[in-house]
Design a protein around this nucleic acid. Structure first.
Length: 861
RNA sequence: GCCGAAGUGGUGGAAUUGGUAGACACGCUGGACUCAAAAUCCAGUGGUAGCAAUACCGUGGGGGUUCGAUUCCCCCCUUCGGUACCA
């Protein structure tokens, strides 16, 4: 190895920093420059303590694009910051006695140091941390505006409650229905909490998905299903012996199946339930409810058997007047629809199972199309078809009948058409310390009153105690006790803080104007470079973070802060970095370096080698980026994570793999340094010699391939193409070349550095300096323009195509790229193997299929 | 459970959108260089049979469409991500 990655990495990182190579000028963020501005963003890191390989791969993807777009002449914004609020900081405080503030900012310092040794092209002057009051003041101001517009509101909602710890538990803190800390049983209790009306935007968030042409289809699909629009109808069932004035309203997406309703089922929390159960069924139903609640608290997501119990009451079918038994069932959701379902066992899988179990009637009302009267068909039949057993609708198609049945119900006042969404309002209250304080005050006489704007920010106090139960803010007298802004009477401050997803729903806008202390951000600056052109992050954020950000941009738009609809134009979701785990029978999980030849280095026991899975500290299957950088250099590591596979797939860490990358970089270094004179004398010329044509093809083909592959985020194949070019250049014997061809060869070698520079920026800067450092025109390679290609030289003149007999590969022929079918057939007929099949005994050629440049297929009989 | 993905040699992966399966790497084998090793360079490398030419098999499993399927359709298996208070 001729070059020393350690000193080289550091040298260029310092030069980039000293020359402010990646800072973008604030005055360039004006809508006049919109076409020349480009925004590359990676999801902001949570301040967990140290970087892991997932971060490295995430930020490398963004960095490659940022460097590529810069070389293409665009004005690139590439910022970084910290997602600093959240539960883990509070857990650290309880476990280690470290204040969340200290824990978080120590972590930021450490991670920042590590990030800087990776040489990413960040504009560090725009760094933000969401736990700073300069950041969260704007969330508080916004919250008050949303409260005044009735987008923020309070309602009762359920939480996991641990009676032992006297605290609300996150879902993550509940294990098998038990508190993770004290293992006591978790209760579900109800609290007044703050919500944002994201449901007002359900339809718009759904429609917006159609405009996101550069998002992965799977993410679009997940969001679409998450919003979960269904069109259908409300159907009202009156009670047979009314014990309450309330009718039961059910929601159905299939009003066409109404005549097949043979039971109703209610959720265990149905509000009128007590009035519906008959006295003789009370004990059964109450026992069932208790069992179901216990079962639900377990939170395992295994398949649960559909269970129910009869209430003793009957409803009246709105069209037939039949008696319909009413059940309570464990599979009815109370958040969706009205908490009541109409059961149509003949045409719904779940209802069918339920009816069979409890011996309820099954009445088919839709037959598959073209079914004869005496045909039998399998139930449940869930498709559309022809109406049967449905009075005047018999014989019609079910699609047509659906509308007519709804109209009939409407005329009787027993139903209406309705659109529902699965998406429900966003609960943003957290009964926790480490978050943005919700700027509200509870006054005995005035009720809920927003904090006066001039009193913002409501600063999160530092002097809190984590000894004791619940939210530390509740015990902070100074914080809690305040005066009502309206009547000046003593009042209590809201102690709930905001969900951290709020912090990450708008940070990308603040980067555009991070130091503004007059306003959340300058509208012109934000409009000049948004939506974010390329956004890179994990697919685990497909729904929540990415949906909340889309919601926030719409809120801000409607308040006049910006003038676009969608936050992210192109979304790249990257996979996880995985690693094999090793377990020793005596020493539990081992680090990779504790394993030698599948044996534990401590006790020589044979270790269990697990499948590669997400790197996690608990399994010791982690590699520390810091050590890798020191051992192998930044560029090898970047190259490995990008070469290991497509960016959106999980990659498996491998020691051998990174050594291979190091070897490749060594080859590049040697190639350039050994041919220094030719590269310095480089010139793009053509002499029409064989070698000249050969080089021209490879130069232009590779530039085109790498350019297109970066545009389509296929970094693994881009790197492979550069490797191929390097292999080709190694085979050239420069001694036999003419002077002109040698200059072209120099150009080819130089193009390797240019093309590789977004991927391996440090070594390419070094080589660029070795070649051109002494010249007047020298500039950093991160600033030199991206290479152009000549499309006349990106394809070969001759191609080798396959020759098939009846679709089976039998031979290949080499013909000119645009050879006609006749020419190709003529060539193939000179091949004795082929000839044997075509003109062999008893075989006749019946058809020839020729696809230019691809395949020649003879069909013989 | 529900929603969304993935499955190709010993390994990671490639395959211009239905057209030569295995590019590029890792590993392995052999060779060159060396007193030797490392490093480097060169060559070979899907499986089975064969000295070879070649033949057959082969993209998680089973079926289908097609002259031709890793690619399109149906069924199944396994693994992973999300599931609204982890971020």
């Amino acid at each position: 190895m001729l070059y020393d990655s350690k000193t080289c990495d550091k040298k260029w990182q310092q030069i980039w920093e000293k020359t402010n190579a990646f800072q973008i000028k604030q005055n360039s963020l004006t809508t006049k420059n919109k076409n020349n501005n480009y925004y590359v963003l990676e999801m902001l890191p949570y301040t967990s303590g140290s970087l892991h390989m997932g971060h490295v791969s995430n930020y490398t993807i963004g960095d490659i694009i940022a460097r590529f777009k810069t070389k293409q002449g665009l004005n690139v914004l590439h910022p970084i910051g910290w997602d600093a609020f959240g539960l883990p900081a509070e857990n650290a405080a309880r476990n280690n006695g470290l204040h969340p503030w200290d824990w978080t900012f120590n972590n930021i310092n450490e991670m920042k140091k590590e990030l800087k040794t990776l040489g990413f092209s960040y504009d560090w002057s725009r760094e933000i941390a969401t736990a700073n009051k300069e950041y969260y003041i704007w969330e508080q101001k916004l919250f008050i505006q949303l409260y005044n517009k009735n987008i923020a509101y309070r309602k009762n909602s359920k939480v996991n409650w641990c009676n032992e710890c006297k605290t609300v538990l996150a879902n993550e803190q509940v294990e098998d229905g038990l508190c993770w800390r004290c293992s006591s049983e978790v209760q579900i209790s109800s609290l007044q909490q703050w919500f944002l009306r994201i449901s007002n935007y359900s339809q718009e968030l759904l429609d917006g998905l159609d405009t996101l042409k550069q998002w992965p289809q799977r993410v679009i699909q997940m969001q679409r299903n998450w919003i979960g629009k269904s069109s259908g109808a409300n159907v009202v069932f009156k009670l047979k012996n009314p014990t309450t004035k309330q009718n039961i309203t059910t929601f159905t997406t299939r009003p066409d199946t109404l005549y097949g309703v043979t039971f109703l089922s209610l959720s265990i929390n149905y509000k009128e339930l007590n009035n519906i159960i008959t006295p003789e069924h009370k004990d059964d139903v109450n026992q069932f409810i208790a069992e179901t609640k216990a079962e639900n608290a377990k939170q395992d997501r295994k398949e649960k058997e559909q269970l129910g119990v009869f209430t003793g009451s009957y409803a009246i079918h709105p069209l037939t007047g039949n008696n319909i038994p009413i059940y309570v069932a464990n599979y009815v959701l109370d958040e969706y629809g009205s908490g009541a379902l109409m059961g149509v066992p003949a045409h719904d899988q779940r209802d069918y199972g339920f009816a069979n179990k409890y011996h309820i009637n099954i009445v088919p009302v839709i037959a598959p199309p073209n079914t004869q009267d005496d045909d039998s068909y399998e139930l449940p039949y869930t498709e559309h078809g022809t109406m049967v057993n449905s009075q005047q609708f018999n014989g019609q198609t079910s699609q047509q009948s659906a509308d007519e049945i709804v109209r009939l119900l409407e005329s009787k006042g027993l139903g209406n058409s309705e659109i529902t969404y699965r998406l429900h309002d966003w609960g943003i209250s957290r009964q926790r310390y480490w978050g943005t304080p919700i700027p509200m005050i509870h006054c005995d006489s005035c009720g809920i009153v927003p904090v006066a704007l001039e009193d913002l920010p409501v600063v999160l106090p530092k002097d809190v105690s984590f000894e004791g139960d619940g939210n530390p803010l509740d015990r902070h007298e100074e914080f809690v006790n305040t005066t009502c802004p309206k009547c000046q009477a003593p009042a209590k401050r809201e102690t709930d803080t905001m969900d951290t997803f709020i912090n990450s729903s708008w940070y990308f806008l603040r980067y555009c104007d991070p130091n503004n202390d007059q306003s959340i951000f300058d509208k012109n600056a934000v409009d000049s470079i948004n939506p974010v052109d390329t956004y890179v992050g994990g697919v685990e954020h497909a729904v929540m973070h990415l949906l909340y950000s889309r919601f926030f941009v719409r809120i801000l738009r409607d308040l006049g802060y910006l003038s676009f609809d969608e936050p992210f134009k192109h979304l790249i979701t990257q996979g996880m970095v995985c690693m094999t785990s090793y377990k020793c029978p005596n020493h539990s999980w081992l680090y990779p370096h504790e394993v030698d030849n599948d044996r534990c280095v401590h006790c020589q026991s044979v270790v269990t080698v697990g499948r590669a899975e997400k790197m996690s500290k608990s399994k010791n299957n982690v590699v520390n980026p810091k050590e890798i950088m020191e051992q192998h250099g930044v560029d090898s590591c970047r190259l490995f994570t990008m070469f290991a596979g497509p960016v959106d797939k999980d990659i498996q860490w491998s020691q051998e793999g990174i050594e291979g990358m190091k070897r490749f970089l060594g080859r590049v270094y040697t190639l350039v340094v050994q041919n220094k004179q030719h590269v310095q004398a480089r010139k793009y010329t053509t002499t029409n010699s064989e070698i000249s044509n050969h080089l021209l093809y490879h130069i232009n083909y590779t530039i085109k391939k790498v350019t297109n592959d970066i545009e389509s985020v296929a970094f693994n194949t881009a790197i492979a193409a550069i490797m191929e070019l390097v292999n080709v250049l190694y085979k050239v014997d420069t001694k036999t070349l003419t002077n002109d061809d040698r200059k072209l060869f120099g150009y080819a070698v130089h193009s390797v550095i240019e093309l590789l520079s977004p991927f391996a920026p440090h070594i390419c800067e070094e080589l660029n300096e070795i070649i051109d450092g002494h010249t007047d025109s020298y500039q950093l390679i991160c600033k030199t323009p991206w290479l152009k290609y000549d499309d006349n030289h990106t394809t070969r003149n001759t191609v080798t195509i396959g020759v098939q007999i009846n679709g089976k590969m039998r031979s290949t022929i080499t013909v000119s790229a645009d050879a006609s079918e006749d020419e190709a057939v003529k060539h193939a007929r000179q091949d004795s193997k082929i000839l044997g099949y075509i003109d062999g005994d008893g075989s006749t050629l019946v058809k020839t299929i020729y696809i230019k440049g691809r395949i020649l297929n003879f069909i013989v009989k």
